[in-house]
Nucleic acid binder design. Structure first.
Length: 716
DNA sequence: CTAGGGTTAG
């Protein structure tokens, strides 16, 4: 009989589908073993493993047994704890108590796990109470460990700690649960303290530290722990690697990234056969600036999920490849993988970064209707960014006012950013009022507002904002940039940094570069320095921006032709952006910069971000004017917005005589129009008008680059 | 027969 039972147990153990189980069940009945709690419990556990619903089959199987033992009760309770309703687990527990069957430790682990899964701390506390009332579980490792985990997951870390402190015996699992609790709260000091005290550290404990640092945006420490882990001879599995890959993605360190991929492949967790590793690597490669490599990995993946697609779409978006992002989205919806909120963040930012306003509107309007994804405040922030950058500030403001949830800082911040681009202090004021309330210490908002006032020449307001900043004692977030050295080591530079061993050479190289650029017409953009100092000091400060230091170091330390990759913690400033453009041309180098918004690929004097944030010089020649309105036959893909500083009119096409020269400001209409209205006395029909100055030019896709120095249009 | 570590986000 014993032998038969263990044979049937073994059969159940290997069942992989429902019919299989039913056949074994039939054998159990045929052999008259249908009252065996032991066998039926195994049967129900197997059904749970296969995700079969507890109602009706497992439940009926349970009801056949006249005297279920605690293990059989628990198997059903546990089954419900993996499924809903959780209530059913509790009802069963009550029935079990009523018939006088004593719970065992397994019962409590099942119930507590259910509480953790549903984040029901109240219920968890009651079950905790039960273990005390009934007694005898105080020294049970399993119950204690599950209880810690339950409290940690429900956000009651202190309760978890109390359970931990009161346990007579603890093991590495108790410690790890608590370490994870502190890590999730962001307290890596406490987590690290516990880890140091932990007598026996296993792979999971180490991994908790590595991922803890990675999730708290401390990639360097994550990688450092991974190194220590390897030195300690601890094995690595896929979960460890995911944390390490995420850290590499944050750092943007190419050499380290390639090494990690190698480690993953060597340990049998290659991207082709492992979706999670594959998706993480896609994200890592795009964030390291290699979006093509990311796509190669993506393309070779045998299985993909919503993470893989979203990471790739977001990757394309960051690199300004909007068409690729949208196309991949189309491919995705043909599969049975449903897009989620993150997928749409990717699609919307892709449209936003290249000015595809109409596309963006379309996706925003259909995301809920066609794909069942309800827009969150983050999606509204994307839309505000998209409309705002596109020049539709009023519409953007209207969207913020009518959105169904309270706009958060990101939403107003997007609007304020757009006001900077389109020099609109009126809308900016509205956004700023809300931002100062939501993020009273967000220094960036004050700087932005002050810059917007400055471009409108509203100096009193500039002074007012600066005074506000002084009163609040706000300090500028230190800018920092890093670049990889020859061996993959990371060199980090802070704004104004002179501590690097090669500091003198770096400064010299930078000076040489800027001198050359000035011969090509570069002028330092003093408005990038938000302090009340002399112009000379502003120039000096501009020269110490961290991304310029990183660039100079990159030029010095790599050989000609090598791509220079820089990561910056804040958004790249406009002045640095134009220096990068110039440097890419003069030095004949490709420069790739990741800032906190997106990637910039500089080559031949141009940036892939297509000018949303850079002014460019232009020359326009227009023939044929009526009613002071020039119809510019702009190429569909090129849109202009901004102010013309000067224009010049030569009367008649033939004589070429200059009839008028003016410094009048000519305002261009929003970029969706191709109508240019000339203020004041406009030229007549036969005149040749030459406009020169600086304007912001936006270019909807990387596939249609614009000439950034000279734009020539001949009209009508 | 129970318990701990997991990838995407302007």
């Amino acid at each position: 009989m014993q032998l038969l039972e263990s044979q049937l147990i073994s059969l159940l153990h290997h069942c992989t589908n429902l019919n299989h189980i039913k056949r074994v069940h039939a054998q159990i009945i045929r052999h008259g073993l249908h009252q065996s709690s032991f066998l039926l419990a195994k049967l129900i556990r197997t059904l749970t493993k296969l995700n079969a619903p507890m109602d009706p089959y497992p439940r009926l199987a349970f009801q056949q047994v006249k005297q279920p033992n605690p293990f059989l009760w628990t198997s059903l309770i546990r089954g419900y704890s993996f499924q809903r309703p959780l209530n059913e687990s509790i009802l069963l527990y009550n029935s079990m108590r009523r018939v006088g069957t004593g719970p065992v430790s397994f019962t409590f682990t099942a119930l507590l796990k259910a509480c953790a899964a549903t984040l029901d701390a109240d219920l968890g506390r009651q079950i905790h109470g039960q273990t005390i009332t009934i007694g005898g579980f105080a020294s049970d490792l399993y119950v204690g460990n599950t209880m810690i985990d339950m409290y940690v997951k429900c956000g009651f870390l202190d309760c978890g700690r109390k359970v931990f402190d009161e346990m007579p015996d603890r093991d590495v699992i108790s410690w790890t649960s608590l370490i994870v609790g502190y890590a999730r709260r962001g307290d890596m000091d406490l987590a690290g303290g516990l880890f140091d005290e932990l007598p026996l550290k296993d792979m999971v404990a180490w991994t908790a530290m590595v991922t803890g640092f990675a999730q708290n945006a401390r990639p360097r420490e994550a990688l450092c722990f991974f190194d220590r882990m390897q030195d300690a001879g601890i094995e690595t599995d896929e979960v460890t690697l995911i944390g390490v890959i995420s850290a590499c993605a944050q750092l943007g360190a190419t050499k380290y990234a390639n090494w990690v991929r190698h480690v993953a492949e060597k340990s049998g967790y290659g991207p082709t056969n492992n979706v999670v590793i594959g998706s993480a690597l896609v994200d890592m490669y795009s964030k390291c600036g290699s979006v093509d490599e990311a796509f190669k990995v993506f393309d070779n993946m045998r299985e993909r999920n919503v993470f893989s697609y979203s990471s790739m779409i977001v990757g394309f978006a960051m690199h300004g490849r909007a068409n690729a992002a949208v196309q991949l989205f189309h491919e995705m919806v043909k599969t049975d993988i449903r897009p989620n909120g993150v997928t749409f963040i990717g699609v919307l930012t892709a449209c936003s970064h290249v000015g595809m306003v109409e596309h963006g509107r379309h996706w925003f309007a259909t995301m809920e209707k066609s794909y069942g994804v309800t827009p969150t405040a983050d999606h509204y922030a994307c839309m505000v960014d998209l409309l705002g950058r596109g020049g539709c500030l009023e519409e953007a403001l209207e969207l913020v006012r009518t959105m169904p949830m309270d706009p958060h800082g990101g939403v107003w911040g997007a609007l304020l950013g757009a006001c900077r681009i389109h020099a609109n202090p009126d809308v900016a004021e509205i956004a700023a009022v809300h931002l100062f309330e939501l993020e009273p210490n967000g220094i960036g908002n004050y700087i932005l507002l002050s810059n917007i006032y400055a471009s409108a020449r509203r100096w009193d307001d500039v002074a007012r904002v600066r005074k506000l900043m002084r009163e609040k004692g706000l300090k500028k977030n230190p800018g920092s940039s890093w670049v990889e050295g020859k061996k993959g080591e990371i060199h980090e530079f802070f704004a104004g940094d002179v501590t690097h061993v090669k500091s003198r050479e770096i400064r010299q190289a930078l000076e040489d570069l800027v001198n050359k650029l000035q011969l090509h017409g570069y002028k330092p953009n003093l408005s990038c320095v938000p302090y009340d100092v002399s112009d000379e000091d502003k120039k000096r400060i501009l020269m110490t921006h961290s991304e310029k230091l990183a660039l100079a170091f990159g030029l010095l330390s790599t050989s000609a032709g090598c791509t220079i990759r820089i990561v910056k913690n804040l958004r790249i400033c406009e002045d640095c952006h134009s220096v990068m453009c110039g440097a890419s041309q003069i030095a004949g180098r490709e420069i790739v910069i990741r800032d906190n918004m997106r990637f910039h690929h500089f080559s031949d004097g141009k940036c892939s971000c297509a000018v949303y944030n850079s002014w460019c010089k232009f020359l326009l020649r227009i023939y044929g004017m009526t009613n002071h309105i020039a119809i510019l036959p702009l190429r569909e893909s090129v849109l202009l917005s901004g102010k013309f500083e000067r224009y010049e009119v030569r009367g008649g096409r033939k004589d070429g005589r200059t009839s008028q020269e003016s410094d009048a400001l000519l305002n261009l209409p929003p970029p969706s129009a191709n109508v240019l209205s000339l203020a004041r006395k406009g030229p007549s029909l036969d005149d040749l008008v030459t406009l020169s100055g600086e304007a912001k030019v936006q270019c909807p896709s990387q596939e249609s680059p614009i000439p950034s120095i000279l734009l020539q249009f001949s009209g009508l």
